[in-house]
Every structure is written in structure tokens, then in C-alpha cells.
Design a protein around this nucleic acid. Structure first.
Lengths: 163, 163
DNA sequence: CCGTAGCTGCGAACGGGTCGCAGGTACGGC
DNA sequence: GCCGTACCTGCGACCCGTTCGCAGCTACGG
């Protein structure tokens, strides 16, 4: 029986271990440390994410993976993303009514999405620190404010067609 | 007929006319003012929402409507909710990965949803006013902060199983 | 009381994701 | 090295919440 090494990942989301955490091998190392097996499919998914231009949907990952490994199945990609998320390596954000987007966990920022033009603006998460503190103080609630994008109207759309 | 307490929302998002905006007839009046027709199905949907205990999913509305009007179809309920939303009478909030929940537009508050126990805490929207102002000032972005619930961990769950 | 635009029921289809299963394979143990 | 097995995979069916196209019905201004 394999002894499953339940090595706790130190830190949390932003953990940068001794291995470079932004290379395919580094990230796979983190996964391996958690007792997971490294398969060609998983490697391909991690490669796709590392080389992706920012956020990608699961479908983007699928097609990017299948470009080189046509027999990696959709469900494998979903399952791999889930494992990677549990390991704190990637995270997903809901941008609105459509599909979620995935990004490397270290890539920590909030998203403003324009309802009109769909444009995405990145902002530093610390803009919401006061609110988070207040929610904690007033309601004992540990808020996760980066899991949903903030919808609204960007400057350009507001100017071009004032409400 | 249950009469909900009217909190007059001056300058708020929803247009509140001279008609009492919290009764079935009042709300239907608002809809009629926008050129829409009042049908038994629509009346039933509005009734369901007025009598609903807070937020309800579209499915809740469907079954509550069908209890009295069994031949009102799901798609009619969805279409009615859409019309009501366009008229500023109701609004929907995404609580997480599941179905959206609907509420009367005047019923304006933010939602904290515990990832562990699913509990919902209501907070006044003005808690986010500073952030909204800052987003507008710094990025020209008019944020809509009440369209997604804020996920996180409630006090009870944090205490009973500290991270 | 009539004409018609706007609603409706219906059922099929959608997008995004999940699941159960049987077979394949990475990797610790020896 | 090779073996055993727990973990991972391909596959396809399925799920949920929601949307759509269509033909027929009906609210309501005239």
C-alpha cells in the first residue's frame, strides 16, 4: 500500500517553494508533493496554464491541451484543474454569466468586467482590504473577495453612452 | 395580502412611482406603465415574489406559481422575471455555483454566503460605498457590487474548524 | 368588439460542468 | 528492474439552470 504523503503546503495561496513556482516543472513538483501523480495529461494542462495569456476558460485549456495531446479528455482537464486548485496552484474566477476563467494562484488580482464591452481591468486585491477587515470585525465573516469579478461599466462605455 | 414594509429608496436604482411599490397591484402597475401586458401568469409570478420569504430561485417561483396555476410554464416564469428585471422591479443575485436568487428590487442588500454551511448574512450595501467611490475615482469604473454574493466563511464555521 | 402586437405553452436544445465505470499507468516497495 | 495497486484516465451519459423557436392565444387600444 502506498503511503500517501500528506505534506501540508506551507503558507497558502502565494506559496513560493524552493522550486521555482512559475515553471511547469516547479508547479508539477508542488502537485507531486501533495501525493498526486504526474501524468502526461496533467503536465499538458499545467503547460497550457503557464503559457496562457492571463485567464483562460476550461475550454481554452482543453483545446490548447488537445492541440498537442488530442486524446486528453475534457473531463480529465476539469479533474486536473480541480486537483491543481486544491493544491493551491491555480484558482478560478467567475467573470459573469458565462464560463469561469482560470489562472495561476500567484497571479493575484481582482477583476473589473464591463457589462457593455466585456473589457477586463485588473486591480490590486488590497483595494478591498478595508472592506474585508470590516466584514470580519462586524460580522466575523472571512470574505473571499476575489472569487467573483466585479461587474459594472468601464470609463469608456460610461462616457460614450452616459446612463 | 402581506404588506411588506416600504423602505422608500430615494434616488435608488429601482423606480418607485406614486403607486405603492410593494403590493402586487402596485408592482403590476409599474410593469403596465412600461407598456407591458398583464397576464395571469405574470400576476402569479409577482404574487409569488411578494409573498416569498426573501430570496427565491427561479425554480422556487415556478413551483409556487404552479401551486395555484399549474399550466404556467417554466419558460414563462423566466421570461417574466426578465421583464420584471428590465422594469427595475426585481433583481437577481448569484449566490455561488448554483442557481441565482431573485428578490424585489427595493429589497437592497448585500449577501455574505458561507462556503461551509451555506448560511446567508445580509449586510447593508453602503458598507461597500468607499470601495465603489475609489473604483470610480481610480479607474472610472462604475461598479455594481450587489450582483454577486460575497463568499467566505461565517463566524460559526471559522470557530468550529479554524483553518 | 375587433385587430394585432405581445405573451404563452411546449418541448427541444443549450452551455458548462460532473459522474460512474472499466481499463490503464505512475510510482513506492522490494 | 519489476510488481502491485491506488490513482488517474477515456468515454459517454447525464445533470442543472436556463434559453429558444414556433405556432397559437389574448390583453388591450381603438
Amino acid at each position: 500500500m502506498t503511503v500517501r504523503r500528506t505534506v501540508p503546503v506551507p503558507g497558502g495561496r502565494g506559496y513560493l517553494g524552493p522550486v521555482p513556482a512559475d515553471t511547469v516543472e516547479g508547479l508539477l513538483g508542488l502537485l507531486r508533493e501533495r501525493g498526486a501523480r504526474i501524468t502526461p495529461g496533467r503536465r499538458a494542462v499545467v503547460e497550457a496554464l503557464v503559457h496562457a495569456p492571463g485567464h483562460v476558460t476550461a475550454e481554452d485549456v482543453v483545446s490548447s491541451v488537445q492541440a498537442k495531446h488530442p486524446d486528453v479528455h475534457v473531463s480529465t482537464v476539469y479533474r486536473t484543474l480541480e486537483s491543481l486548485e486544491q493544491a493551491g496552484i491555480v484558482a478560478h474566477v467567475h467573470m459573469g454569466h458565462g464560463a469561469a476563467v482560470w489562472h495561476l494562484a500567484e497571479d493575484d488580482r481582482l477583476h473589473l468586467v464591463c457589462d457593455d464591452c466585456g473589457d477586463v481591468v485588473h486591480i490590486p486585491p488590497r483595494l478591498f482590504d478595508d472592506v474585508r477587515d470590516q466584514l470580519l470585525a462586524d460580522h466575523g465573516f472571512e470574505a473571499t473577495l476575489d472569487h467573483f469579478a466585479v461587474p459594472g461599466r468601464c470609463r469608456r462605455c460610461t462616457n460614450s453612452a452616459p446612463a
